[in-house]
């Protein structure tokens, strides 16, 4: 097990949802399984492609064509027999907010900025912490969103760019070890959240550049103009008001 100390029993009852079981989601799920997480939820609509194999650690060439969530579940259960794995072979969308409420922590393994905004907004609505990462080429960015307590993804990047300005890994390439590193960092952050330790990447954006060998953080702050945070605060305020009515 990855975590051989007092926090391991605490993890056995916890539930983590990994959205996107590709370059980030594979190493994150592996590390969480080995750490002793009780339940992993996996969401991904895609089958395994040959071009995935250099960076998506859970899969091998014989798996090409099979659904990622099915293969990932098999591998993870074999690796950690006590692990419960729940799968959704579908694309994550705004309609999945109720699903998120059944988990203690979310790991962002999606590969478009648009999907990262959808997941951020859903995490805020469900009030579930989210460990975000994005990777391109040799660069990874990480941040953690604790709804109501830290800057969210939309506080930092206010809207998605046009698709042509943010190529995906599939389009622009990515170095396998960079996603593996970022996914492992996401798993470590999820463990910190689950055992109640202060998360490392709230109100900070970590940028790792494997080409220059640099690791840098920039401080973040909640944006008072953030439409997602404002909407959630207003919704909760309205609900609080209703609960006051006898």
């Amino acid at each position: 097990m990855l975590v051989r100390h007092a926090c391991e029993p605490a993890l056995a009852t916890r539930r983590v949802l990994v959205v996107g079981v590709g370059g980030l989601g594979s190493p994150a799920a592996l590390a969480l399984a080995q750490a002793g997480i009780g339940t992993l939820g996996l969401v991904d609509p895609d089958p395994i492609e040959i071009s995935n194999l250099h960076r998506q650690l859970l899969y091998e060439s014989a798996d090409v064509g099979r659904p990622k969530v099915a293969v990932a579940a098999e591998r993870l259960r074999r690796l950690a027999p006590g692990l419960r794995v729940e799968t959704w072979c579908e694309r994550f969308g705004p309609g999945h907010v109720a699903l998120l409420r059944g988990f203690d922590c979310l790991v962002d393994g999606t590969d478009t900025v648009a999907a990262k905004f959808v997941l951020n907004d859903a995490a805020l609505a469900a009030r579930v912490p989210l460990v975000h990462a994005g990777v391109l080429g040799f660069v990874a960015q990480l941040m953690t969103v604790v709804p109501g307590a830290s800057a969210c993804y939309r506080c930092v990047f206010e809207e998605p760019p046009p698709p042509e300005e943010t190529p995906s890994c599939q389009e622009a390439g990515v170095l396998g070890p960079v996603v593996a590193l970022a996914g492992a960092f996401q798993a470590a952050e999820a463990v910190r959240l689950l055992v109640g330790t202060t998360p490392a990447w709230t109100n900070r954006l970590l940028r790792i550049d494997a080409w220059t060998g640099s690791w840098r953080t920039v401080p973040l702050a909640p944006n008072p103009r953030c439409t997602a945070c404002t909407a959630i605060a207003e919704h909760e305020s309205a609900n609080a008001g209703r609960s006051d009515v006898p």
Partner: peptide
């Protein structure tokens, strides 16, 4: 955005970082 936006003063030796959203992960 929390300083003076594009009017934020720059002096010699300052470090300016450009940080865009990046997409990948799958």
């Amino acid at each position: 955005r929390f300083l003076k936006q594009l009017d934020t003063p720059i002096k010699a030796g300052d470090e300016v970082s450009i940080v865009p959203a990046i997409a990948g992960g799958a």
